[in-house]
């Protein structure tokens, strides 16, 4: 498996049967493909749907789309609604969990994923509401960027999407919990070592006792 698949498969273990979950576009969407047998979650899409199914290839069907504007199926238990209701679900604490990609995340649970000033300005879309209102915020990212710099920082440098809002960080190397005392290394991938994870993480890590291992197969 590549890094994204490893992350998606590990995050899938965090979701409980029957939970209402919002998965961001891209890597987070892949999580749905790795749910263990017996676990089904209800997917919420902020453009106005619960019970989202899978991406549909072929001609664009504008009547049923995900938040990236891509056609999707809707499951038999699904329902559609307007944007105000969609964010009532999100802000009102009715969404059990959200999985988001990021540019930066830090030891305080801050997340920065919506702009690089002067360069890239996608905008926050629904992310600021999701990190504020979701009961559980799971951040997924490769452990380092393409140049090998840690994505898990002491302090985010980019404009924040949310303050002290992240609960769990999952990378291809580690599962890290955000605690009031700092970041706690819960698990490492079966192809790395605690020393390597510490070396590749800018923020200090508290070690769980014991640090468990997760599968990369």
């Amino acid at each position: 498996m590549d890094a994204k698949q490893i992350i998606a498969k590990r995050v899938a273990l965090e979701l409980k049967n029957g939970e209402l979950v919002n998965l961001g576009i891209g890597l987070p969407t892949m999580v749905a493909d790795y749910l263990p047998e017996g676990v089904e979650v209800i997917l919420q899409s902020e453009n106005g749907m619960i019970g989202m199914g899978h991406i549909v290839s072929g001609p664009h069907n504008r009547n049923f789309t995900n938040a990236g504007g891509t056609s999707v199926t809707i499951l038999p238990h699904g329902a559609c609604f307007d944007s105000a209701f969609s964010f009532c679900l999100i802000r009102g604490g009715h969404v059990d969990g959200t999985v988001l990609g990021t540019l930066e995340v830090d030891q305080h649970g801050n997340i920065a994923n919506y702009m690089i000033p002067g360069k890239m300005v996608p905008g926050m879309g629904g992310a600021m509401d999701l990190v504020t209102g979701s009961r559980k915020v799971i951040v997924v990212t490769t452990h380092t960027d393409k140049s090998g710099n840690s994505k898990i920082l002491k302090q985010c440098s980019l404009p924040l999407t949310g303050v002290a809002c992240c609960d769990l960080i999952v990378t291809e190397l580690a599962v890290i919990e955000v605690t009031p005392n700092g970041l706690k290394l819960l698990e490492i991938a079966d192809n790395t070592t605690v020393e390597e994870v510490i070396a590749k993480t800018e923020a200090p890590l508290i070690l769980a006792e014991p640090v468990k291992t997760f599968s990369t197969n």
């Binding site: 902020e46 307007d82 944007s83 105000a84 969609s86 964010f87 999100i90 802000r91 919506y114 702009m115 002067g118 890239m120 300005v121 905008g123 926050m124 879309g125 629904g126 992310a127 600021m128 509401d129 209102g133």
Partner: peptide
């Protein structure tokens, strides 16, 4: 982003739920 960065168009980014 191009017009925003060049100052040709003003862009006010609003969180989606707040916009609604």
């Amino acid at each position: 982003a191009k017009l925003m960065n060049s100052g040709e168009m003003e862009v006010d980014l609003v969180p989606q739920g707040t916009l609604a």
